[in-house]
Amino acid sequence: MSKRGRTGFTLALLALACAMLHLTLGMGAVARQIPLLVVAPLVVLLIAQAGRDVRAVLHPAAAGPPSGRAEQQSRPSALAWILLVPVLVELLGIVWGPGVYVLLFLRAQSREAWPRAIAAAALSALGLWVLFAVIIGTA
């Protein structure tokens, strides 16, 4: 996973850099001067790194030892839990979104009892409501 993941990450960065290069070339001559000086070497460096990573995948002996890190939960599951935060904030707002998230997290991840999970969720929502609706006035 580590070598493929590493290569995938490098290729993702390379794709992003290429997209930014494309956007840079579409800018006016003056506005793109400095960005072009930055993005061009960036693409070159990332191509070099990607080549290196791909070689490591194709020739496993050249690479280092595999990761021995113990993993508590799968990476996709952790990422899904992380991305659920902005999704809920987008759908339910900054007061109820995190509150619902707290409830879901405590029930599904931490296996807390319902009363405790509901109390924690209610407290979170109340705290955020006080902060954003009462004090700051942005909710």
């Binding site: 991305l83 902005p86 987008e90 995190p98 998230y101 707290v102 954003f132 942005t138």
Partner: peptide, 23 residues
């Protein structure tokens, strides 16, 4: 996580900042 989401939103009151933070 809750602190990060609230902090990102509190900065300018924009939900886009919450997406940016988690992205």
């Amino acid at each position: 996580l809750v602190l990060a989401a609230a902090g990102a939103f509190a900065y300018q009151g924009r939900i886009g900042d919450v997406w940016l933070t988690f992205g």
